[in-house]
Design a protein around this nucleic acid. Structure first.
Lengths: 334, 334
DNA sequence: GACACCGCCTAGAACGTTCTAGAGTCGATC
DNA sequence: GATCGACTCTAGAACGTTCTAGGCGGTGTC
């Protein structure tokens, strides 16, 4: 049934040339005349020859392959993948993906990439301890996206999260809010700490320390929902959240709790995930610049692979506020 | 900086045994004493040896590797990936992913998997013409999920979509609706045709042909939104949509158009994507049984790879209606 | 006319693994 | 004490590719 795939040798035999020459033609490398090039390509097409990337990589050491770990539960990661594919294609690299799912942890995901011998690792919001990432980075280039890592070998491309929360708070204050709460992303992630810090700084900068309130949350919808229940006893007039997922969970509980958004309470998310654009979520949120983030991440990985000098280990991109329908001036009655 | 990865030869030299023996130990194959096994493993651990899956697959022909094509724009596919990983792990297979993005089409995605020499292809809702899929399937096992393919070589694991729309319509009719519209998935997908057919059948079965109305849509949010604008001139009391994404787009336009859901108009989606569970979308929808679909798909791929006899080329799973907050009895005024 | 050079091509090794065939050792059986 | 089988181990080929080194004509230079 499944007949063996044709190899370089098959094409070579059919075209009456050597294996090496076919290899040259397939790689578009110099060393073949236009005439034979044409003939070989014709045969390859006819036999439906597909190069075997395994053998190719095995022999040629350098792999032009970037391993990407993403989380299936993070809608935002889907947007990042789109950007990464585009950026990689731009510089002639391939991507190989490994997903984290509820039943497949980050260590497993990374392990499978290591066996694939990709040339570098791009991790979307890694949760592993810095020491572990560092150990990995001592053996191959590792780019951490959207999370700072305090280890000299790990490259970081991320958004300025402190600034991001500043934007969110500034926006709310400008609208007239004072009683603004923040639902953080839990204690595991540095991004969470940064955003929390940004919130605190901004509140302080506006002289609103007295109104500051941080509720412990997480990155999932249910985390936002839980935080919302906690807030309902003494609702603020506005909330900023760690991310859009958490914000939607929060929104839901607020709505069911009888508050209307944004007239009773304003909500700001983070990430500008594609679903936050969904018109009837219509979430005001802090956008990360996906194109810049992904382009830089790929560029950095390639620099490391090809041994180019790297200037800044950590690159921090400014965020941008996207105002949609979940924020407005505070209700006069409150 | 990046020092060369240790190979079998390194481990063998360090442990004072042959390369072949180390291979035996690493594969947990018979032919090594407990004592050496222990010693070799210790050395491997110390050197942090990682088997090179490329070389391994290259040599051993059979790859225990399933190539999966998924769409980054389909939140439902993320749920499927989770199931596929679990099912594959269960039977000792690996997954290699290739994503379709707005800038990376299905042909490209499949092409990269072919180069990886995976043993079979699992395609989530493929859009390619049946002839093309068939040609592919003549060379290697191909499992199409959630889409029927009329070609004898392509295996199909899908939900009974005709039945699914029946469930949706039955539910609405039971609530008292008569003027029920359907927003389809466009003309490219067979699943779309099936669901449209299911809708028509069901309407007819209830003697409601006169009320039937099909609006052309698609699988994206904007397709649902567009359809909604079309419906607004003469709104039905209920709508079923091709999928959840389309339903959310539709919901949004309806809400902005001044209709409230579900009191003015009921909406039923399709897929039970994780976001449809988001409390404040809270969509009534037709669920596909992810665990069964993924388990069967992996089992089928493995059967084909290992040459086991296959009984039914196409397996059709019953859907299940999940009633949430977007459906209720029709408003008496309409 | 010898030499160098260039463009086109090929032979054969190498990548890291698995597989096949067989070598060596030991204890048991005849 | 030879033969056998079971067990442990090893040498070397093979997988499909790329890379290195070189061969073979032809053209140009001195």
């Amino acid at each position: 049934m499944t007949t063996a795939r044709p190899t370089l040798a098959d094409v070579a035999a059919e075209a009456g040339v050597s294996v090496a020459l076919v290899s040259i033609v397939m790689r578009d490398a110099p060393g073949a005349s236009a005439a034979t090039r044409e003939r070989v390509l014709e045969v390859a097409r006819r036999l439906d020859y597909q190069p075997d990337s395994r053998a190719r990589l095995l022999r040629s050491g350098h792999s032009r392959l970037l391993g990407v770990v993403f989380g299936v539960q993070h809608p935002f990661h889907a947007d990042m993948l789109t950007g990464l594919y585009a950026a990689a294609a731009q510089v002639g690299y391939e991507l190989t993906l490994s997903a984290m799912t509820p039943g497949r942890d980050e260590r497993t995901a990374i392990g499978s990439l290591l066996q694939d011998r990709c040339a570098a690792l791009v991790l979307l919001g890694p949760q592993l301890p810095a020491a572990e990432l560092g150990a990995l980075a001592d053996r191959m280039p590792v780019v951490s996206m959207m999370r700072g890592v305090r280890h000299k070998a790990v490259d970081v491309i991320r958004t300025d999260d402190v600034r991001g929360e500043h934007l969110a708070v500034d926006h709310l204050v400008e609208l007239g809010h004072r009683k603004i709460a923040h639902v953080d992303g839990g204690r595991r992630m540095i991004a969470s700490a940064d955003r929390r810090q940004g919130y605190r700084d901004a509140m302080k900068g506006h002289g609103l320390e007295a109104y500051a309130r941080v509720v412990s949350g997480g990155f999932l919808e249910e985390d936002g929902a839980k935080a919302a229940r906690e807030l309902l006893d003494d609702p603020p007039t506005a909330v900023t959240t760690f991310n859009d997922m958490s914000a939607t969970g929060l929104l839901d509980v607020l709505l069911r709790g009888g508050l209307s958004v944004p007239s009773d309470i304003s909500v700001v998310g983070y990430d500008d995930s594609s679903f936050s654009r969904l018109a009837h979520i219509d979430l005001t949120t802090v956008a990360q610049d996906i194109e810049t983030l992904t382009t830089l991440a790929v560029a950095r990985a390639v620099e490391r692979i090809e041994g180019a000098p790297v200037v800044h280990r950590e690159v921090v991109i400014p965020p941008r506020l996207v105002v949609r329908g979940t924020t407005t001036i505070p209700s006069p009655s409150r």
